[in-house]
C-alpha cells in the first residue's frame, strides 16, 4: 500500500531490553522483575519525573517508552499541541491493576479500595500520562486487539494525517499482564524525518518483530 506518511522513530521495550530505532540501546540483567527493569530504565535515561513512581505498571511502561521515543524528535517545536494525536492499543487493557483493585474489595473485613489504583483501571490513562507530560491535546483513542493490528492501525493513522485531523501521531502498543510486557511506540508524520521509513503495515510488522 502506498502512503506519503513516514515512521520517524520507534522505541521498543521487551525482555529487559530497550531498542531505539531497532538498535539495542540498553539491557538490564540484574532482576527478572519488570518493575525493577522499568525503574532502572527511568534512572538510566535520567527521566526525572517523580510522578512516574505513582503510576501503575502499565503506565510506567508506556511512560518510559514515550520518553525515550520523544527524545529522538523535538515534536513540540514543529507541531501544535492540538495537532498531535495519540493512538495506542493493547491486549490486556488494564487487567493487571484491575486484579489488584478487585483484591482490595473481596474481603469485607479488610476492605480498602485505593483511589490511586482505581484511577489506573482504564487503559487510556496511559495516554493521559503521556499527554500531560508532553502537553499533547489532539485526537486520542485506545484500542484493544488480540494481537497488534498493524493493518488497521496504519490505515487509520494514515487517514487521520491525510484528513489533517493531526499532523503527527504517537502510536503503538503497550501491554502488561501477569509479568509479560511489551511496548512498541512510534511516531508517524507526513514528512521524511529520522527513520524515513514508509508508514505501512508491512514496515510496521518488520520493525516491531525485528528486535
Amino acid at each position: 500500500m502506498s502512503t506519503k506518511n513516514y515512521i520517524s522513530a520507534i522505541c521498543s521495550i521487551k525482555n529487559g531490553k530497550v531498542f531505539v530505532n531497532n538498535t539495542l540501546d540498553y539491557t538490564f540483567t540484574e532482576s527478572n522483575e519488570p518493575i525493577d527493569f522499568f525503574k532502572s530504565v527511568y534512572k538510566h535515561y535520567q527521566l526525572n519525573y517523580p510522578k512516574f513512581y505513582k503510576m501503575d505498571s502499565l503506565s510506567k511502561l508506556a511512560f518510559i517508552a514515550s520518553e525515550i521515543l520523544l527524545k529522538t524528535q523535538a515534536i513540540s517545536k514543529e507541531h501544535t499541541p492540538e495537532n498531535i494525536a495519540i493512538i495506542i492499543a493493547n491486549s490486556a487493557s488494564s487487567l493487571e491493576i484491575d486484579t489488584e483493585h478487585q483484591q482490595t474489595i473481596n474481603d469485607k473485613a479488610n476492605y480498602f479500595p485505593s483511589p490511586a489504583n482505581f484511577v489506573y483501571t482504564l487503559p487510556n490513562i496511559l495516554i493521559g500520562e503521556i499527554a500531560i507530560r508532553n502537553k499533547i491535546k489532539g485526537e486520542n483513542t485506545f484500542f484493544i486487539f488480540d494481537k497488534f493490528d498493524t493493518l488497521f492501525m496504519s490505515s487509520y493513522i494514515n487517514s487521520l494525517l491525510n484528513s489533517k485531523k493531526a499532523s503527527i501521531c504517537v502510536a503503538g502498543w503497550v501491554d502488561f499482564y501477569e509479568n509479560h510486557y511489551e511496548a512498541n511506540l512510534y511516531l508517524v508524520e507526513n514528512s521524511e524525518k529520522g527513520l524515513k521509513s514508509k508508514h505501512t503495515a508491512e514496515e510496521l510488522n518488520k520493525r516491531i518483530t525485528n528486535n
Binding site: E82, I125, G128, A131, I132, I136, N140, T141
Partner: peptide, 8 residues
Amino acid sequence: SSNDANHI
C-alpha cells in the same frame, strides 16, 4: 476527540 493534558 481531545485531551486536557492536565490531570489523569
